[in-house]
Write a protein that binds this DNA or RNA. Structure first.
Lengths: 211, 211
DNA sequence: GAAAATATCACTATTTTCAGGGATAAGAAG
DNA sequence: CTTCTTATCCCTGAAAATAGTGATATTTTC
């Protein structure tokens, strides 16, 4: 069995070193390339023969979700395990839907990370227990509020609401009628399942809708 | 010069490994103890002769701020460098006020972390540039809103506002008058410098007031 | 080419929030 | 003993948000 070359991507150097150390004693791994941005990963993929990517979700320039989308579109044979600080149901749902091969929270153990790598290299998916739980929650939540994705305009309005603007101020800023803003608000509350703007903004922050 | 024994504390194993790797080639460092909770650090301090602690801020059981307070009270000769994912001005202010010897964000370089360790071991303080900037902001913010600390009751009200309750509902839940709740609200807006409840809740989340 | 999603506008009525005053009592800190 | 902080309460009026319903034009998607 030949060794597999991998890329580890994370914008935090210490994490990069940590993962590198944890994986360095695994026999099945060949060269290890490190990257601090999604862009770098894409470049490395062109230069080297890569079999597996282990990537954090939040990164500057090109984040983990974008990277994941890109990989699954253009380099579908390359496996990818996502790592995340957050394990909220929104993030989890996105990652699974985009087709990641594995998803492990950052507060995992050395053993679990190695297990995840081995499982994925064996052509199976690996998702931590916590992640699976969150995924069930996301499925459950989605049933309650059939469409949780906000439209670009709605996101724009929600962001301005977070900036403490009133409907009138928003209408002036976006050159639209107050009525329209109010309609967007109504739909935002509906889609996020909130009763108040405060709740919607809180939801947006916590579920990573803003970022 | 004798070697210094240190403790590294972080609830994320990968980070622990990363920092360990980064510091392992420094001559001035002796034994390295690892901990995943603040409690463990306190226990290790009793068992061993420790000169420096490098600790993350967010940890379960006893967080970095509590740990810092404890150390500076009972083991004031032990140096402590704080690490944090967040670099918002609230956190920075707290850490500096509590008397940390150093503060470095987690997205720093290997060189900077080593420099921080050397500086602190040389009996000087080390704060990253970003951190210093944030500290200035915190000082500036504080001037604008003389008292940014919310009282326990105000925090309670703010949390319930985040749960989408109206003033009336909060008054019923806390067995107080609606007028009282409104007064608390008014003071919360004043102290946080917000115009709306949404802004106050957002501020609370982002600045780590809720946690 | 039809169906679905998005973005736009309108009206009404009720509830809630915000801004502005002011007041009292208890306890901590100096 | 006085000052500060906290927690409590009260009132008013204007502004804003929410709930309910309905409608139209433009994209996007299938």
């Amino acid at each position: 069995m030949s060794k597999i070359n991998i890329i580890i991507a994370d914008d935090h150097l210490m994490f990069l070193e940590g993962i590198n150390t944890i994986l360095s004693d695994m026999e099945e791994i060949g060269d290890v390339h490190l990257a601090t941005e999604g862009n770098q990963v894409v470049r490395l993929l062109k230069q080297f023969e890569i079999g597996l990517i282990i990537s954090d979700i939040s990164m500057p320039k090109m984040d983990g979700i974008e990277l994941l989308t890109e990989i699954k579109k253009k380099h579908s044979h390359v496996k990818i395990i996502m790592l995340s600080m957050l394990d909220n149901h929104r993030t989890v749902h996105k990652v699974i839907q985009k087709g990641a091969d594995g998803f492990v929270p950052k507060f995992t153990s050395k053993e679990e990370l190695q297990k995840a790598v081995r499982t994925v290299l064996g052509n199976e998916q690996y998702f931590s227990e916590v992640i699976k739980q969150r995924y069930m929650e996301s499925v459950f939540e989605r049933k309650k509020y059939s469409n949780i994705e906000l439209s670009p305009r709605e996101k724009e309005v929600l962001a301005l609401l977070g900036e403490e603007l009133t409907s009138k101020e928003i209408s002036e800023k976006l050159f639209i009628s107050v009525n329209t803003v109010e309609t967007h608000r109504k739909n935002i509350l509906l889609k996020t399942g909130s009763k108040t703007t405060t709740g919607a903004v809180k939801y947006a922050i916590e579920s990573g809708l803003f970022d």
